[in-house]
């Protein structure tokens, strides 16, 4: 029985992890891309990694927190411009090809031994090297605080401070997206998702709107990446393709083109994965599936879940089938 309680505790603890919040921010960004604008960004993890490098490298170079945050935002913007300029005038799958490739390239360059002194190569950058400027902002006194069944440090690596900041950002970004989407700007964006040519015939510069959407989603991805590495470390391989696919699955699970879908999807997704992994661990003896294979099994389930979601319930939990359009 204890094992099950541990699974439940792990599930709830995972839902409020700062990395889950970071993941949710990146998912909100992807939702701006895909859910609202119809852009097939298959490299959101690349935006995260760019943001993570932007923040950590800038901080290590001696920049204060806010300047490093600006670097993160600039990195996301430049990356979006770089990928958007050649592809946004073309059919949707070109963006998919270029983003999936570019995300991989960022990872490869990040781990290249030539850049060891900057990015730490394949070992990445340990969190202590760039975390302090953020921790220093904490208004909380030292010590621990218990809330419900959670008991964390106030300001520590995975403490309340970063949890509160990260989840507040999730709410702020969701509200900003809501503000955008109810405006005429959002109307054009949704029109583009439906039919670019129609919107073009009404005198809107479709390319510029798509580019703006790509940049916003990309910057959210970069900020997500920054908060993903603040409580952990910069590991290029942790922000690879799998991360992109996880974000996609979470976004589709919660409901693309909805405001809270990506957030709900992210929290649920982590809980579900822990649940599947925990259940399989408990119920299936190690002789059949050892822990490593259980992990692989849960990844296979993610892939299958992504396929099934897209085929049978593309609108996810919160979505309205009539609202969601899957045209390229």
């Amino acid at each position: 029985m204890d094992m099950w309680i541990k699974v439940l505790y792990d599930m709830s603890a995972n839902m409020i992890l700062p990395t889950t919040a970071a993941f949710a921010i990146a998912a909100i960004g992807l939702n701006v891309h895909f859910g609202f604008t119809g852009l097939l960004n298959m490299g959101q993890a690349g935006f995260m990694l760019i943001g993570a490098y932007g923040f950590s490298v800038a901080t290590i170079a001696g920049l204060p927190f806010w300047a490093a945050t600006l670097v993160t935002i600039a990195a996301g913007t430049i990356f979006a411009l770089l990928l958007g300029i050649p592809t946004l005038k073309l059919r949707g799958d070109y963006l998919a090809i270029v983003t999936i490739a570019a995300a991989e390239i960022v990872r490869m360059i990040g781990r290249a031994s030539v850049l060891n002194s900057v990015t730490g190569g394949s070992n990445g950058l340990p969190g202590e090297t760039y975390r302090n400027t953020f921790s220093a902002l904490s208004p909380f006194p030292d010590g621990k605080t218990a809330f419900l069944w959670f008991d964390f440090d106030n300001t520590g690596v995975n403490g309340w401070f970063i949890r509160i900041v990260a989840w507040s950002l999730v709410v702020i970004f969701a509200v900003l997206v809501w503000l955008l989407m109810r405006s005429p700007w959002g109307r054009v964006i949704k029109g583009i998702r439906e039919d670019e040519d129609a919107v073009r015939s009404l005198g809107k510069n479709v390319f510029a709107f798509k580019m703006q959407a790509l940049i916003i989603g990309g910057v959210l991805g970069a900020i997500g990446g920054m908060f993903y590495v603040l409580p952990t470390s910069v590991q290029p391989d942790a922000l690879g393709r799998n991360m992109t696919f996880l974000i996609w699955t979470a976004m589709l699970l919660g409901g693309a083109a909805t405001i809270w879908g990506p957030v709900l999807g992210s929290a649920l997704f982590f809980a579900l994965r822990i649940f599947i992994q925990g259940t399989v661990d408990i119920l299936i003896p190690d002789a059949i599936l050892n822990t490593q294979q259980t992990e692989q099994f849960s990844w296979i389930m993610v892939g299958v879940a992504l396929m099934l979601l897209v085929i049978f319930r593309p609108q996810g939990i919160l979505g309205d089938k009539k609202e969601l359009n899957f045209n390229v």
């Binding site: 097939l40 799958d93 998919a96 892939g303 396929m307 897209v310 085929i311 899957f326 045209n327």
Partner: peptide
């Protein structure tokens, strides 16, 4: 299914 959906299906399949 639209092509976009199919593309995502191929991606899910690739992961699996």
């Amino acid at each position: 299914l639209s092509l976009t959906q199919m593309i995502i299906v191929t991606i899910g399949l690739a992961l699996a």
